[in-house]
Structures are given as C-alpha cells and as structure tokens.
Simulated assay, not measured.
Amino acid sequence: MKKKFYNVLALVVIAATLSSCATVFGGQVSACQKTKPAAGQPARSVRGVALVADILLFWPGAVVDFATGAIYRPCGK
C-alpha cells in the first residue's frame, strides 16, 4: 500500500512539473510579461491555447504559468 502511494505521489509531481504548457513551450519570458501593468494601462492579454491546455491537462499548471508570467503574450515592439 505504501509503495502504491509513493508511485501515485511521484506521478502527480511529474505531471505538475511538466504540465504548465506556456512555461514549457512558450519560450523565454520577457520583462514585460513579468511586470504588472501600471494603473490606467490596459491589461495584458493571455495566451488562450496555453490556458485551455493547462485547464484540460492539469489545472495546477495554470497556476505555474500565471506565477511565472509565461501565460501572457509577449509585448509587441
């Protein structure tokens, strides 16, 4: 019973670390993705495909993507 618990725990940890789609596949996070917009500035847009993939595959991955800022689209030049 204890071995099965550890196997399930290891599977959950691996899924959590590999499931944040925008962090893994989104490329390098730019400085504008990491910073919050100032008061009066428009909100940052979210990568819709990465958000849907995070929710469908493993929803804690969305938390990781929002925490790192990778879920937001890169700023235009």
Rank of each mutant, 00 (worst) to 15 (best):
R73Q: 14
V12Y: 00
D54R: 00
L11N: 00
A70D: 08
R73S: 10
A16Q: 04
A16G: 15
Q28F: 08
M1L: 08
W59C: 08
V8P: 03
V13S: 02
A62W: 01
V49Q: 12
G76S: 15
K36P: 13
K3I: 10
N7E: 02
L11C: 01
Q33R: 12
R47K: 15
S45W: 00
A15F: 02
C21I: 08
S30E: 12
G26F: 07
C75F: 14
S45K: 10
A15V: 02
S30R: 08
G27K: 07
F25S: 08
G48M: 06
G61P: 03
V52P: 02
P37Y: 03
F25M: 14
V24A: 05
G61W: 10
N7T: 07
K2A: 11
I14M: 00
R73N: 14
K4A: 06
T23D: 11
A53Y: 00
T68P: 08
C21S: 13
W59G: 11
A38G: 10
A50D: 14
A15M: 08
A50Q: 02
K3W: 04
C32M: 15
F58T: 06
F25V: 02
A50Y: 13
K3E: 08
V64L: 15
K34C: 13
G26N: 08
Q33V: 15
F58G: 03
A62L: 12
F66G: 03
F58K: 07
T17H: 10
T35R: 15
K3L: 02
A43H: 13
L9Q: 01
N7L: 11
Y72N: 02
T23P: 07
K34L: 13
A15H: 10
P60I: 01
F25Q: 11
L51A: 13
V52E: 05
R44S: 00
G26I: 06
Q41A: 15
K3T: 00
A22T: 05
G76C: 09
T35W: 09
S20Q: 06
N7G: 10
I14K: 04
K36S: 15
V63G: 13
Y72K: 02
V63Q: 01
Y6F: 04
V49P: 07
F58V: 04
S19V: 03
G61E: 07
S20C: 09
D65W: 05
F5W: 01
A70L: 12
P60R: 03
T35M: 14
G76T: 15
S20L: 10
V13P: 00
A31K: 11
K34Q: 14
L11Q: 01
D65C: 10
M1P: 09
A16Y: 09
P74S: 09
F66T: 08
T17I: 04
L56N: 04
F25K: 11
T35P: 03
G48I: 15
V64D: 12
V12G: 00
A62T: 13
A50N: 01
K34V: 09
A10D: 05
W59Q: 00
P74C: 15
A39F: 09
R73K: 12
C32G: 08
G26A: 06
K3F: 07
L51V: 06
F58P: 06
R73D: 12
L51I: 07
A16K: 01
